[in-house]
Design a protein around this nucleic acid. Structure first.
Lengths: 219, 219
DNA sequence: ACAAAAGTGTTGCTGTTACACCCATGG
DNA sequence: CCATGGGTGTAACAGCAACACTTTTGT
């Protein structure tokens, strides 16, 4: 086969989490040229003896310290000029995680969480990639496609927390009382018996998802 | 860079159409070894100076004789053993077309449309790929994700035609009368003023989609 | 006592479901 | 005139939107 049929392929892993009612992405600051000091999506070049899924999982474990992440395939980027050197095909993956369970709970100088609508200076075409992928992700969360919405709340939560995130993703306000009635009334969530009590006001009930009812549910 | 970071990449184009109320895919019979006589998904190797989108469009035009197809990205396949020779990464695209507008209206010996649940003997891992991609496509049609449902009916149709396809995709029966009321009552379709008259029975009204109302509509 | 946050109740509207019934065409 | 397929009507019900109102906490 001619040489022109060989391509460099990289895996990009966009790690998302729901935090403070917002959709956030984990990024790393580049330590060397090119784009030294710019932020980038965690990535890895694919070698001939690794599958893309293995590659994405390795990036995930390396970044978060966790194993068996919820990783799904997203878009592929193949513009001719997206890399400075050879043409590189980027295959992006989405990981959904709980920020508090990872090694990267707090922001540091070179590893940090960003709101997807408040991105820092990004290297390469990574800003465009984040925009395209998170646009797709928001659509999927909004329709709970492939149970995306559930994956953001693996552990207990209050309904206001859930609502904050949902309003942010949909970018429109929702009536607090109707939201409550919907999830409790349709048994989409289960009362864990516990309460939160942060700050003033009545403590919120901690719920977990009723997975049977939420499976494939369009919200 | 070391040689082990170079990979062969191929574009697969899965061309789908709604026909006789069923979801069909266009396949070609392989004329040479390996897998001579087996059916395969139209494909092309990617060279360094072409984007995947250009590659998919070229396959589309070559197969259908049409330009500017409705093409969207689907899954990527990177198992180590999916090709007989070198490891080849397959990037699949979905094209939705109208069978009657293409060069391939009738089945021939080596170019043919197949119902996705009645596939012929397929080469490589193409059967698995068709199953995975069409599973995803059915999910998207069922939720009208990215307006997939609309794309299958670019020209006029009768409501029973629409319903047949929808029942097939959802794999469950729908009440004919409620289906009619939903689409007409909510102005999701527009009466073109024309009728069909094939066979016995009352002729059906020909409708077209009311794109404004169907845009982003969850059905 | 008061503010803040969580939870309950009521009403009307929209869309779905499950039916019975009527209309237009070909043989 | 009757079989076949397309179109209209109606009543019960679930879910959603827009509200007023009550309960539980911290200060």
């Amino acid at each position: 086969m001619e040489n022109s049929y060989y391509n460099v392929v990289e895996t990009l892993l966009l790690i998302f989490a729901a935090d403070e009612g917002k959709l956030k992405i984990y990024l790393e600051k580049k330590q060397d040229e090119p784009y030294k000091g710019y932020w980038t999506i965690p990535s890895s070049l694919l070698d001939q003896n690794t599958t893309l899924e293995e590659c994405a999982n390795a990036i995930y474990t390396n970044a978060t310290g966790l194993h068996n992440g919820l990783i799904s395939q997203s878009k592929v980027f193949s513009s001719l000029n997206r890399s400075l050197k050879e043409r590189t095909i980027a295959i992006s993956y989405i990981a959904i995680t709980d920020k508090t369970l990872t090694d990267i709970k707090q922001n540091t100088n070179d590893k940090s969480w960003f709101q997807i609508d408040e991105l820092p200076k990004l290297g390469f075409d990574h800003e465009q990639i984040i925009n395209e992928v998170s646009r797709e992700l928001r659509d999927k969360i909004a329709t709970n496609y492939d149970d995306m919405f559930i994956k953001f709340f693996p552990s207990d939560f209050t309904l206001p927390e859930l609502q904050n995130f949902y309003e942010y993703v949909l970018n429109k306000p929702i009536d607090r009382r109707n939201f409550h009635k919907k999830f409790v009334g349709q048994d989409l969530v289960i009362d864990t018996g516990f309460k939160t009590s942060k700050g003033s006001g009545r403590p919120g009930t901690l719920y977990k998802f009723n997975l049977d009812k939420m499976k494939g549910k369009r919200i």
